[in-house]
């Protein structure tokens, strides 16, 4: 008797398992018209607590209210974000796995390493979320007060001026500085902007390159900021001059982007872009400003145009 019952239960279970895909298939069919039907996973290629993470959360918290389903952030900063970059590439292109990284990240990984092959064509670029750039600043108490001071010092002693970099990715900013100012300096690679900032305060290196989010801290500590590597000044820090206005075309714009794997359905991209546009008129812009970044939504043809020129410039630099 007992055996019979368990057999029946077993049969029931087996049939349930067999039928289950049908239900799932039914869901898939209705999904396209009403994306999203379930929670969306967003892979962030940096650990919790950093700038990329803050940006992802500043966007996702208001955005999940607009799309009507939760956005779950998964942080993986392993190997400088490369592992997560591979995970986004491998994900199913159904709109339920998205990612956040910068144009600088993807170009750097696509052109400089072969361990996990990623290419700029492996992703669907949904939207640029913000705009930022690197700044060049002198150590505390340095005799360098502006760009001409740096040029003069570096011309007198070629290669003697040390410039700290948060990671190998900023080598590009350094090369631009050297090339456009016509000087030779020595880059010292650190692990992270915080240590660069600490060593600038301690005076262990002559100058450093940091992201624009350090402007506030640098001004508090009285460090001289020589220039910003963007086309125009930042609205939040109108006192910081660009290199362009000083006559040096040092431009290294970075945009954190919402991305997905290659071949994301147009409906998905359109839905996200439409909701992002709504969000940037209010809550998303506010939350991005709160974390000290500059909101700048870039989508569609404009984003494609920006990336085409940007990737071409980075490819030329990184593969030479």
């Amino acid at each position: 008797m007992k055996g019979k019952i368990s057999k029946t239960v077993g049969l029931l279970l087996v049939s349930l398992v067999l039928v289950a895909p049908l239900f799932a298939a039914g869901q898939v069919e209705t999904k396209d018209s009403t994306y999203p039907v379930k929670e969306v996973t967003c892979i962030v290629i940096a650990a919790a607590g950093g700038g990329t993470d803050a940006m992802a959360r500043a966007v996702s918290t208001p955005l999940e209210k607009l799309i009507g389903k939760p956005i779950v952030i998964l942080n993986n900063g392993s190997a400088g974000g490369l592992i997560a970059m591979g995970d986004i590439k491998k994900a199913k292109a159904d709109g339920y796995t998205l990612g956040v990284f910068s144009n600088t990240d993807v170009a750097n990984f696509a052109y400089t390493q072969k361990e996990i092959p990623v290419s700029i064509d492996d992703y669907t670029y949904i939207a640029g979320l913000n705009t930022t750039g690197d700044i060049l600043l002198a150590k505390k108490g340095s005799s360098i007060k502006n760009t001409s001071d740096l040029i003069a010092l570096a011309k007198k002693n070629p290669k003697a001026v040390t410039i700290a970099l948060p990671s190998p990715i900023q080598e590009m900013s350094l090369s631009l500085v050297n090339e456009k100012l016509g000087i030779e300096t020595t880059g010292v690679v650190y692990d992270g902007g915080n240590k660069v900032f600490a060593d600038l305060l301690g005076g262990h290196v002559e100058a450093g390159i940091l992201s624009a989010k350090f402007i506030q801290q640098a001004e508090d500590q009285g460090l001289a900021i020589l220039g910003l590597m963007l086309e125009t000044r930042l609205e939040s820090f109108p006192s910081v001059p660009t290199f362009l206005e000083q006559g040096y075309s040092i431009l290294n714009p970075a945009r954190r982007m919402l991305v997905g794997p290659k071949g994301l359905p147009t409906e998905v991209v359109d839905k996200l872009v439409a909701d992002l546009k709504k969000g940037y008129e209010g809550p998303i812009s506010t939350s991005i400003t709160t974390i000290g970044e500059v909101p700048a939504l870039l989508t569609g043809a404009e984003l494609a145009k920006f990336l085409e020129a940007d990737f071409a410039m980075r490819k030329a630099f990184l593969t030479k």
Partner: peptide
């Protein structure tokens, strides 16, 4: 460093 992130998210 993670707590630092908690501060910056509040501006």
């Amino acid at each position: 460093a993670i707590m630092f992130g908690a501060l910056t998210i509040h501006g």
